[in-house]
Design a binder for these strands. Sequence first.
DNA 1: ATAGGGTTAG
Length: 785
Amino acid sequence: MPLRLGVKNNYLHLLEACIQSKSLTEAKKIHQHFLKNTSNADSSVLHKLTRLYLSCNQVVLARRLFDEIPNPSVILWNQIIRAYAWNGPFDGAIDLYYSMLHLGVRPNKYTYPFVLKACSGLLAIEDGVEIHTHAKIFGLESDVFVCTALVDFYAKCGILVEAQRLFSSMSHRDVVAWNAMIAGCSLYGLCDDAVQLIMQMQEEGICPNSSTIVGVLPTVGEAKALGHGKALHGYCVRRSFDNGVVVGTGLLDMYAKCQCLLYARKIFDVMGVRNEVSWSAMIGGYVTSDCMKEALELFDQMILKDAVDPTPVTLGSVLRACAKLTDLSRGRKLHCYIVKLGSVLDILLGNTLLSMYAKCGVIDDAIRFFDEMNPKDSVSFSAIISGCVQNGNAAEALSIFQKMQLSGIDPDLTTMLGVLPACSHLAALQHGFCSHGYLIVRGFATDTLICNALIDMYSKCGKISFAREVFNRMDRRDIVSWNAMIIGYGIHGLGMEALGLFHDLLALGLKPDDITFICLLSSCSHSGLVMEGRLWFDAMSQDFSIVPRMEHCICMVDILGRAGFVDEAHHFIRNMPFEPDVRIWSALLSACRIHKNIELGEEVSKKIQSLGPESTGNFVLLSNIYSAAGRWDDAAHIRIAQKDWGLKKIPGCSWIEINGIVHAFIGGDQSHLQLSQINRKLEELLVEMKRLGYRAECSFVFQDVEEEEKEQILLYHSEKLAIAFGILNLKAGRPILVTKNLRVCGDCHAAIKFMTVITKREITVRDANRFHHFKNGTCNCGDFW
DNA sequence: ATAGGGTTAG
């Protein structure tokens, strides 16, 4: 080094040169020399050295030096605050600002933009508002820089009224001020206001720049305001903004969000420069629009061409594609790839992975991954809770929900959209009530999606009138609300109410969708409304241009079959424009059982076996048909055939919620704490029932045992256990609600009627299909189920 | 400029 080190001015010159060239190694060298050769730290050298570290983005080193400087200048304070405001941590900037005040250093107009940027980064509204009052006191509020920073702060924090007030108060508004206001509107979804502001600024002679456009494009996309989007695109072309990668990506994303994937792709293809954001936006656009093939192809291209490295955003989009395709093996490969890349497994990507596992049906892997996630947030909990419900484990979902409450993470709206279906599944009314209360407290109870889930919850928990109350009080219903309410009436056997609601829907000029008709037809079938079913099935395609799907046909076969038009149902199946599947044959088989049509039952059963009988339900149906006809050998053969198929019988399980605790019973289960009381109660009931004329339906028992033993087996069916438990634990006269995973057994159906007479209680059983409301010795299903 | 969890259907 040619300079005579140790001389202060030489250091200063050298440092200034380094600041220009941003050379960190030089900086460190000089710093070392300086430490060695000077005993007393000179403030101006320390100032320059700090600035040098800042210019090299060495915030930690700069801070260490800064803290040694006895009286740093305002400029240096501003620079170090600026460094924290740009690179974080944001609270570092705010802390520095406060210590500056504390030391009696007066902030200037350059201080405020930096510290306010930190406040908006943290959404630290209270700090920002206080800092605003300081700026006022120092007479800086009317400064263009400061005021623009304040507008930006309030806009980013969503306090648009205050942003607007300050913005209006400004005498000179440059393009930056306008952009702050516009970006604020954009951030909070006020697309029209943002576009309006762009017009207004031009009227005032301020020309929108590329930041203006970039700031407004996200909200245009979100609002799917394609017209605005095209106008903005035109403006970009005229001003040649569209060559830039940021504007190009913004436009691409806007078109993708407006479902104009061809336009988006066109822009992507002609972009001169593409970065990882452009690729991610394009891939994400495909995934959101259900174009998985294109998304995966583009991702492969990105990897093969080695164009840019995949980011967590890219990987997240591809994982979502795997989830939608339930392509588990690709999902697992990606997981490995992410680990191998050493890519940041941030919480967003972790949640996407978790959800991918849940949606691909490997809930155990999802739970394992969830357990190991650290930290977890409300999204992680929501994902695993709804994952459990989707995979048929509502009890686990509620137990994780309890853990969530203990963990101190507040459930949000989406969490509750997973919790409510869990309550529905379990018919856990107490949990449902609590959830509803929580939703009211949090102000979520008016949300349409939440109300839809509440309607479903109340109707599946047996409280159809509460469901209707929620429906009535909604201020914005969508088609899902109507569908949920219609099927709610349906499963309660209230077919006329379902039809009435459907007519209300039409009278309001709303358009039913394909699911509305499934709900409606299913309601008709539960209530034996054959004529109405036929009418609306035909009207569906003729008047509403909805092509019947298999699901609609299943409902139709159900309607015809239950009502005794078994041959017509068979004819209906043969005339369908597509190949019948197992589910529709099962519906017919069920009709054969009700109407004891053995011949057709056998034929249908053969069809089912040739297709591969997905579930044991069909074997049970056929063997029921045989046993009802006294053909025990044939019934036995069916059970053997079932074993040959390797199908195990799903155990019947019933449960009842008492004081918020769900008690589950499996047929013949002898493990419950109150077992002896339950048994005594059942024996007691049996005596009374027999006195009233009950005879055990022994044809439902397939074991080769004595009649008396059959009676005992039937007595310990899960639904009877749960009811006895309810009688023991609920006050006299209180109604009982029991839920069963399969269809209620015929013997139990008969027995429960007697029980309502003996106990003078209403007993409701929700089975896999519908509600059975037992009262005074009858069931509202009319014995057809 | 890109990103995670979600309601209805036998």
